[in-house]
Design a binder for these strands. Structure first.
Lengths: 144, 144
DNA sequence: CGATAAATTGAAATCCGTTTTCAAAATCGT
DNA sequence: ACGATTTTGAAAACGGATTTCAATTTATCG
């Protein structure tokens, strides 16, 4: 996991950006968090420990993470942008419970392969994809 | 294609809503359009022929379409909501060219099947899904 | 170590698409 | 045609993302 930090620092110097205490704090907090937090939620979380850091800075820094490749932006269609730590180059997809909001990650090489075939058939070169399955998780099926 | 119109009219009476000329105009224009237009674009398009109809009405009517099942909302993560005519119960997915914005629809029963298996494995019941492949279409690969 | 240029910060303002408000107009049932 | 109810369009409000700007911090270099 050191890799992410290095990658970020390298990106900063490559772009002649400055290494600030805020950026480091946000980076550490970001790497520590597991779930797919919206900018807002992440900010609120962070503010508990670091009340001085403003929303704008959090927002800008998350964008930086995304630019340098250590974060991916997600959009589950609820109007909130979400960020997650990108683990190496493995793409993964999401299973979202529409009731409790739980998000489970998965990946399926077979589906990926089929996607490539579809792209070929339409003469597309795929750069990225998103696959989200919406439904009810076990718990929520029970209470429904 | 008469079905959509009937379905909408039925929905209106079921909900004790009124059948207005605006709604009929919007319905016809909506069914005629092929692509995945954003509310904004659809409104601009419509305004050429019907300058009297306001954005709010278009927006509300598209929502109605969505509620009664003749339209589906799409969100390709560009911050604009898009609506498309829902053809019967067949779900389809999208291939989006990130350069020119072209959108191609496809469906793949194999992928659907794999999705169900994944859901089962995680004890989910799937209600819906979205799969979008982003890349460059043939034309844009050439000019890139 | 300073001095200086350049980048960053936080608060507030702005942006931009969506959604709501409200008074006037249209619709439907009788 | 009447009256209750819904709908309409313009404009305002909303919500989240993004930008602005003056003050502060950082990196670099003598």
């Amino acid at each position: 996991m050191k890799k992410h930090e290095e990658q970020f620092l390298e990106y900063l110097s490559r772009k002649k950006l400055k290494n600030t205490s805020q950026r480091m704090i946000i980076l550490k907090a970001f790497l520590r968090q597991k779930s797919h937090l919206s900018t807002e939620d992440f900010y609120l979380q962070l503010r508990k420990k670091h009340p001085g850091i403003g929303y704008a800075t959090v927002h800008r820094t998350l964008k930086l993470f995304s630019e340098c490749g250590i974060a991916s932006e997600r959009n589950f269609g609820d109007g909130q942008m979400r960020f997650e730590v990108s683990l190496d180059n493995e793409h993964h997809d999401h299973l979202v419970c529409t009731d409790c909001g739980r998000i489970i990650e998965f990946e399926d090489p077979q589906i990926e392969k089929l996607q490539l075939e579809i792209a070929q058939k339409h003469d597309f070169v795929i750069k990225d994809h998103r696959l989200e399955l919406y439904g009810l998780c076990g718990d929520c099926q029970a209470t429904a």
